[in-house]
Design a protein around this nucleic acid. Structure first.
Lengths: 155, 155
DNA sequence: CGGTTATACTTGAGCAGTCAACAATCTATC
DNA sequence: GATAGATTGTTGACTGCTCAAGTATAACCG
């Protein structure tokens, strides 16, 4: 008359736990891989990728922060590294002196292409080894329903 | 004759990106919430929860490391905090002097119960607001296929 | 204009976790 | 039993991020 259906009651919890574990395991693996073969963090790569598909003149730091879900200061420090490595340079904004664009250098574009090749291959390998196309679509769709922004509704 | 099907080719990538974004957004939210209302990290909570469902005499630090996917040193430092807060204490192992068990104190058990109430409610709220039971089962199953261990096959 | 308020970004302090090196203990072999 | 190797855990140095506070510029408004 009380708790016999253990499986049904905790399904949210199970999904949540699997989510956390999967993320920890998978990102650790990719991070190490990316760091060893290209000297890049997962976030480094992510930022480069965003810059790669963004407009020619680069992206505002705040836009970047939104896209990769880091705080502004996180972005500053991450870009510090990429600038020091020569992959990104600063660009000024004519209409607003407060903003500094982050612009991909040629070297950065090359690095991105190079890293993308192996990294995306790894990602695709990991996923397509375990899921069919249809399942991936499902997974993407389901995950896409989660917040995706730092400022979720917290009423 | 070349790339016209943008949607189909990058499904792995889309799933992967959604995964990363969702994790960043959701964990940030829960972490802040948990920190504000209970002074616990998501990992702190996770460890307490593992101890809560583990055996009476506690868990070995290496077991803990496996379950929450932290490195041994990460566990040491995390437990440092929980011990200082009085939620966990050390327990010796009779048969092996190298291992120290992490044992939940009464205070820790109370804290866990208290934190679990609000935290799990938040998790369930977030998820059941966006997914049906069936979808959650799917999600859990799909996520469960991912490595889950630090030492994945890396041939 | 001049003053307030909002925005874009940076900086200092600090925290949570990693890795590499280490100490301690157990196990196996001769 | 002594010695070699594996296992369990801790520590120092570092990284990648966060938060809170600060600087500089822009926008609004009397």
């Amino acid at each position: 008359m009380s708790s016999q259906v253990t499986t049904e009651r905790g399904i949210e919890r199970e999904a949540w736990i699997n989510f956390l574990r999967a993320h920890a395991a998978v990102t650790r693996q990719f991070n190490t891989e990316l760091l060893e073969t290209h000297g890049l963090t997962l976030n480094d790569f992510d930022v480069l990728a965003q810059l790669g598909r963004g407009p020619e003149h680069g992206l505002k730091r705040s836009e970047l922060a939104e896209r990769v879900l880091l705080t502004p200061s996180g972005i500053t420090r991450l870009l510090d590294g990429l600038e020091r490595a020569g992959y990104v340079r600063k660009g000024e904004c004519e209409s607003d002196a407060r903003v500094t664009y982050a612009v991909l250098t040629d070297e950065g574009r090359g690095k991105l292409r190079e890293a993308a090749k192996t990294h995306l291959a790894s990602v695709e390998a990991l996923l397509s080894e375990r899921f069919t196309k249809g399942e991936l679509e499902q997974l993407a769709e389901l995950l896409g329903r989660l917040p995706m922004r730092a400022d979720a509704d917290c009423t």
